[in-house]
């Protein structure tokens, strides 16, 4: 049972707070012979697996290191192009390390503003009148809970599908937000939240819930 992350989206759709809690690292390192039996392509400034899932290396995983040297974009530290390098037989055997691409802060901001219209369209396409936006969204690997306050701020929690009591947690986070972010005289509305007290309290809250469940908070 894990909570993966907490996000707060302001009324205008901007990400004002994000906290990664327990993001599992998916990493595999393996040595390969020529020719390479996974197909790699370059997209979104990353070298990713396009085809040929095997041994924990899945489609969509990004190449992070070659023989222990980190890869940035499509280049190694010394400026060599990774894809060109993998086409030459003399570089083999070679050790490649793949990992599931982690979200950068920019991507999180992008995703937060993407959730905003989804939330609105869900209520527009409703077959019943006077319907709210998305409250729970489930995929096979996680469940997302969203609580929108009367003032339009959204509290979003991404957790394991079996973790109970997350709808209550969104409200608890709202309480913390009201107590520690809004009452902070140095915090201006709609701006990213950088309040130490808020963060430490949130951290403790998440840890207690993971250890002893929602009933104790």
């Amino acid at each position: 049972m894990v909570i993966y992350g907490v996000y707060i989206v302001s009324k205008s759709g901007g990400l004002i707070f994000n906290h990664d809690h327990n993001i599992p690292r998916v990493e595999t390192e393996k040595s390969f012979n020529y020719p390479l039996d996974v197909k790699l392509t370059y997209e979104n400034k990353k070298v990713v697996v396009a085809f040929g899932q095997r041994d924990g290396i899945n489609v969509g995983h990004a190449l992070t290191a070659v023989n222990g040297n980190p890869v940035t974009g499509r280049e190694l530290e010394d400026g060599r192009d990774v894809l060109e390098m993998l086409e030459q037989p003399e570089n083999f055997p070679i050790t490649l390390k793949f990992s599931r691409a982690k979200m950068t802060t920019n991507e999180k901001i992008f995703l937060a503003s993407m959730f905003y219209p989804l939330f609105a369209i869900a209520s527009q396409l409703s077959p019943e009148p006077r319907c709210s936006g998305i409250e729970v969204l489930e995929a096979d690997t996680f469940r997302l809970y969203c609580y929108q306050t009367l003032t339009g701020v959204k509290f979003i929690i991404v957790a394991d599908p079996v973790q109970p009591g997350m709808d209550i947690l969104t409200k608890r986070v709202y309480e913390l937000y009201a107590d520690y972010a809004l009452k902070n005289p140095f915090y201006s509305l709609e701006m990213p939240i950088r309040c130490e007290l808020f963060e430490t309290n949130l951290q403790t809250l998440l840890e207690t819930i993971e250890k002893s469940g929602i009933s104790n908070v």
Binding site: Y4, G5, I23, P24, V26, N58, G60, H61, R100, M103, L111, A122, S123, S126, P127, E128, R130, C131, S132, G133, I134, E135, V136, L137, E138, A139, D140, T141, F142, L144, V158
Partner: peptide, 18 residues
């Protein structure tokens, strides 16, 4: 946003009414 590799991906969403 998925923390692990999704297999089936999106399954359902729920709002207050449907």
């Amino acid at each position: 946003i998925s923390p692990l590799d999704p297999k089936e991906g999106f399954l359902y969403y729920k709002t207050s009414k449907y």
